[in-house]
Each structure stands twice: as C-alpha cells, then as structure tokens.
Amino acid sequence: MTSGRSLGFYLLLAPVLLWLLLLVIIPHIDLALVSLRERVGVGQYAFSFANFLTFLNEPLYLVTFARTAVMSILATFITLIVGFPVAYFIAKMARGKLQPILFVLCLVPFWVSELVRTFGWMILLRETGIISSLLQWLGLVNGPVELLYNDAAIMIGLVYTSMLFMVVPLVTTLSTLDDSLIEAGYDLGGSSASVFREIIVPHAMPGIVSGCIVVFMLSLGNYLTPIMLGGKDSLWFTELIYSQFIVRFNWELGAAFGFMLLFLSTAIVWVALKLTGQSLEKTMG
C-alpha cells in the first residue's frame, strides 16, 4: 500500500477513468439528456418530460413494464428454488472427484451462446419438436402440441439461461460452511428443517443475494429468450427499447424506456440489498 501520488499511480488510474467515463458514465448522462428532450421541429429539440409521460399514459408500455418485472422476479425465485438443492448437493454431499466434475458440468452449457441454448429449447418445445413427438409416441396426446410461444416457455428458457449465475455463488458460499456447524445443529437437537433455516440459509445469504441479483438483472435485460420462446402477445420490455431505437428511430422515447428499465433494476436490487443487509461490493466483488 502506497499513498504517494507517483507517476505510476496516475498511469494506473487513467485506464479505469477513461473506461468508466467514456463508455459508462457519460453515455448514460447523454442517454438521460436524450430522454428528457422532445423534437419540436426538424433538428430542433426542447427540454421536456413528454417521453416519460408517453410511457406513463400508454397502458401497453406500463403493462409490458410490469409484466417484465414480475416475470423476472418469478424467474429469479424459480432459479433459486431449483438451483439451491443442486448447489447444496455439489458443495456438501458430493464426495471426492464427483464434486469438481459436477461443478464443471454445471458450467459447461453456459460457455455456449445463449442463442444456441434457446435454439435447443425451440427444437424441443415446438409443435414438430422432440417433446411433442415423444408425447404422441407415448399416446398421451393425439396430435402435435405446441409448447413454444407462451409464458411457460419463456420461464423455462430464463431459468435455464440464468442457472449458472445462481449455482456458482451458492456453491461457493455453501462450500465454506463447516460441516461441524451442521453437526452441532443436530447435536443440540435441531431437525433438518431448523438446521436449514437457522444455519444453512443464514450462512448462504451472501450467495443467495448475489445469485438473485445477477439472475434478476439478466432476466430483466434479456432479449433473445422472450423473443424466440415467447408468443406474439408476450412482449418483453427490452423489445420496446429495441423497437424504438432501431425500428421506429424514436431515440427519445427509447432512451426514456431505457431509464425506466434502469430505474426498475436499481430499485429492486436496492430493496433486496436493504432487506437482506448485504452490500453490492460484498456480494459482487
């Protein structure tokens, strides 16, 4: 630790400042400025909240906004419920070589593009897909069934695509839980349920929170999965942003949507951190 202001210090400070200022902070300020202007003539703009008012006054936008939030929270919750036992198994029950093997197996699917994974689910779920064919072959259904293009399909895809980001932090925190703490819990008369509630969950809390935050953000900001697995009516908020920017070329409204998304994610993450008494640095760093 040096506290001197040497040349080296400024050389190390420069890249991080350039990166954060030019690629993150100033662009977002610019985006904020764009969202707060209104086109009043050709090439002429005025300061206004019109874009945010448009957002608030159009039910389709609001409904999509709320739907995206609720579905993302639900996806986060399901991912936690599905992933926790697996993380627990890998961290505490798997013995010897099995443990690293299972852990790597968990990671493997996520080194491939999300597009590939989503495509895989399309092959499985669509009307001519594997599961439909399997159900017909088993005689459970008479004709082809369409399992794609609905909210359940979106949910399957979201949970699948975020699983890694839940399992890894959970395994990491759970494997630091000393077995003797669990044994002590039993020895003092605890049951599986009470040991789980009072010892395992509190210990895993940082991992749970960090997993949930990442999964929530990924679901909220996801574009591919809802577009490809969802139906015609199942809009996702990122689709609105995209269409304003690329299709309608209404950057002002798109920027306003972007800020609503940012606001939503920040608010929910902030509430989650406050409720659980964790901090962003602690859970992410």
């Binding site: 993150v24 985006l31 998304l261």
Partner: peptide, 25 residues
C-alpha cells in the same frame, strides 16, 4: 471505494442499455 463501486456497475446494468447509451453517445 466509490470508484470500485462504479467499476462493478457495468455488471448490473442491463446489456441492452450499455448498448444504446454508447450508440447515443
């Protein structure tokens, strides 16, 4: 601490927003 916090932010900003903000800027 503040700089470290800023440094972590890009991980929690939705990717699409990083895209549009750089596009706009």
């Amino acid at each position: 601490e503040f700089l470290y916090f800023l440094m972590l932010l890009p991980l929690v900003i939705p990717g699409i927003l990083l895209g549009v903000s750089i596009l706009v800027f």
